[in-house]
Design a protein around this nucleic acid. Structure first.
Lengths: 223, 223
DNA sequence: CCGCCCCGTCACCGTCTTGTCACCAGCTTG
DNA sequence: CAAGCTGGTGACAAGACGGTGACGGGGCGG
């Protein structure tokens, strides 16, 4: 589940990104109107959090532009006292709004409700390099092949590797993402998990290991 | 399809009731917390529209009380500026919310969306993969076969599985839908229900189990 | 009141998942 | 070359998970 956050206030942006990331969402950021659209086209997020006040161009234009190319749910962020703007945004196709200041808890509850409302809950698949990971169903599909069942840990491992496809992901980061802080420093866990996942992949598509070992650093998924 | 509307504003109540009635729903009304629960128990509506601000007792208590006895979808009605209350309601088990003022058109769209999402569509029969479920009669028919009698829980289980045919439905979601929040986390209930349903289906159509187990995730109905 | 059905609960079993240990090979370093 | 580190591999066991049978309480109709 990928969320685009657009706000020119760097502090707020960082806070929101932190809260969402902690809740398991992938976050992409933009601080102005034009970059926001560029990031949108590149990342195709599942939800957009959009500030009304942007340095150049307003949130309205961004809202309208996004709505012109996708039915993705949009939640506007407004300062108190901008209620009139709000109405305009809703008419332009925004789905919901949130008044600043708000707590991370509020943000998460509203984001979840909006996702539920628009029915985009579990339908998130990550794709890279001929692999397609369905996180909800815990399955992995090769380009044109039938789905392969994965375990919980294997899914978590691939989730981050596919999201970062082509880039090395450090062992520490993998450990933190798959096991939480508990597994910190235990490379053996990671060794075994990679080993077992490779066996599964090998059986499915022999002689083509997409998991590359970066000695002394971590692992990388072939792009 | 019966909808309970709870609001102390008589004008709004009349307006909402009018819009819903026109759209073909049966509407029952209440203007305060205690009567709302009484009406709920008597009428067992399929959906609840619930104002947060009530003369005596708050919408929270009503929401919690209803959620304690039924997984019926609940949509909260809030005035602008009550966002904090909203979060609490969502955490208490409300499924969606609507901010006043709203147009009748918006109301209908959201009510329909919520009913669709929770699988309680107006359609009395759901069909998928050669199975046809009559919710009102609690019967299931195979393609070309005679109807099979189901229990209440079996009907609720199949209702969501058929609505999501071909897609995995998580155990958590099944538990929430069949038992409400009470059954949360109790996989044994689900195990037994699936077991009993499979026995019934097996007797009816041997060697053809449409319920697929997705280990570690949930169940899926063959499309 | 009695029997039947629904369904919550317990117990047991086989399978799968996962943490842990042991060992090996390759590379680097002194 | 020896020692140490890193990564790959096999094996084992505890625990989780799903399937199954059985028991019994509560509600309902006869």
């Amino acid at each position: 589940m990928k969320i685009l956050v657009v706000d020119d206030d760097a502090d707020l942006l960082a806070l929101v990104a932190f809260a969402l990331t902690n809740a398991g969402y992938a976050v992409v950021k933009a601080t102005d109107a034009a970059p926001a659209l560029a990031v949108f086209d590149r990342e195709l997020p599942n939800l957009v959090l959009l500030d009304i006040n942007l340095p150049t161009g307003s949130g309205f234009d961004v809202c309208k532009a996004i709505r012109g190319r996708s039915p993705v749910p949009i939640m506007m962020l407004t300062a108190r006292g901008e209620e009139e703007d709000l109405v305009r945004a809703l008419e332009l196709g925004a789905d919901d709004y949130l008044t600043k200041p708000f707590s991370p808890r509020t943000l998460l509850a509203r984001v979840k409700a909006l996702l539920r409302r628009t029915g985009i809950e579990a339908a998130d698949t990550l794709t890279a390099g001929g692999l397609s990971l369905d996180i909800g169903a815990q399955t992995l599909s090769f380009a044109g092949g039938q789905p392969l069942r994965l375990t919980r840990l294997e899914t978590r491992l691939l989730q981050i590797l596919i999201a970062q496809a082509g880039h090395v992901v450090s062992a520490e980061r993998l450990l933190a993402h798959v096991w939480g802080h508990r597994g910190s420093g235990d490379r053996q866990l990671l060794k075994q998990l990679v080993h077992r996942l490779r066996q599964k992949l090998e059986r499915e598509s022999p002689g083509n290991d997409p998991l590359q070992t970066e000695s002394g650093v971590g692992y990388r998924l072939k792009a």
